[in-house]
Amino acid sequence: MAFHEVRFPADLSFGSVGGPERRTDIVQLTSGFEERNTPWAHSRRRYDAGLGLRSLDDVEKLIAFFEARQGQLFGFRWKDWADFKSCKPSRSPEAGDQVIAHGDGETRSFQLTKTYRSGEGAYARPITKPVAGSVVAAVQDVEQREGVHFELDTDTGIITFVEPPLEGVEISAGFEFDVPVRFDTDRINVSVASFRAGQVPDVPVVEVRV
């Protein structure tokens, strides 16, 4: 897939509106009951980048970024200010934030994940675009050092240990991350007069599978 490992300007994404989207198929039965199913294993996020624009300089920056991505052609990184850490937004990531796997004595590579829990429900989200320099990890609560004990592929979110963790040990990680997205339009309409009057263009952005 065509993807540029560059982040949409974070000062423009701040103030945008968006969040996760699910797809649910609902069949209404003659009895009044429902059958519900989903073809999606993972949620997909959508945003409106236009709401983060505050000046004509911001518009110019947006257009430059849009043109460099050739509209919908190339994907890019997006900072979701409401959800960009392995921990609470008020905290800094720590090595024990997220349990990502358990060792089997052979496997060295593991996908970063973030688990969302509420009551008895839980959803493990693959993290494919971690922020370089933000990832910390631990094996059975013993902190590991990047470049010494493990290597990180920031393009895929896969962490690879020098030595395979022993069978049954807990592997955890903390990190910041971006969302892989693309523009969901090939056109941006901007009116300088209406923008100065407080109206901003619609700039839809949608998450892509990588």
Rank of each mutant, 00 (worst) to 15 (best):
P180H: 08
Y123P: 00
T154Q: 06
A137T: 04
G32E: 01
G18H: 05
R46Y: 10
F177S: 04
R209Y: 12
G32C: 04
A138I: 04
G157V: 07
R117A: 10
D202F: 15
V169R: 10
F8N: 05
G52A: 08
V210G: 12
Q140N: 15
Q28E: 07
V200C: 07
V142R: 12
D97L: 06
M1L: 06
E67T: 02
F76Q: 01
Q111W: 02
N189H: 11
R117E: 11
P93K: 08
A68W: 00
A137F: 02
L12P: 13
D153P: 13
F3Q: 04
S194E: 15
K61M: 14
R91P: 02
V139K: 06
E67K: 08
R117Y: 08
W40T: 09
S16Y: 06
V59L: 12
T128Q: 02
R7W: 01
M1G: 09
Q70F: 03
V208W: 04
S191V: 13
E163M: 10
A68N: 09
R125L: 13
Q199E: 15
V203T: 06
H4M: 12
R46K: 12
R182I: 10
P9R: 13
K88L: 14
V139I: 14
E146V: 14
L53C: 05
F183S: 01
P204R: 11
H42C: 09
Y116R: 09
V27E: 10
V59H: 03
D48I: 13
T113N: 13
F110N: 03
S191R: 13
V190C: 08
G52N: 01
T156D: 04
G15Q: 07
S13K: 05
L53R: 05
E151T: 15
R54Q: 09
A82K: 10
N37I: 05
A122L: 00
V162E: 09
S92V: 14
R187M: 15
H42P: 00
I26F: 00
A137Y: 01
G133L: 12
G157M: 08
T154Y: 13
K129D: 03
V139R: 07
T38M: 02
Q98Y: 02
F3I: 02
Q140C: 07
P180M: 08
P9S: 09
V148Q: 06
F8L: 07
E163H: 11
L29R: 08
G18L: 06
E143R: 14
I63L: 15
S16W: 11
L53M: 09
P180G: 10
E167I: 00
E207Q: 12
G15R: 10
R182V: 14
I63P: 07
V208G: 03
V208H: 03
L29I: 00
C87I: 09
I159T: 02
R91K: 15
G119R: 08
K79Y: 03
F33C: 12
A122S: 14
V205N: 00
G19F: 01
V142I: 14
W81A: 02
F84V: 01
K114F: 04
S86G: 11
T160Q: 10
S90Q: 04
S90D: 11
K88F: 07
D104Y: 08
H102E: 05
D11L: 12
E120P: 01
K88E: 13
A124R: 09
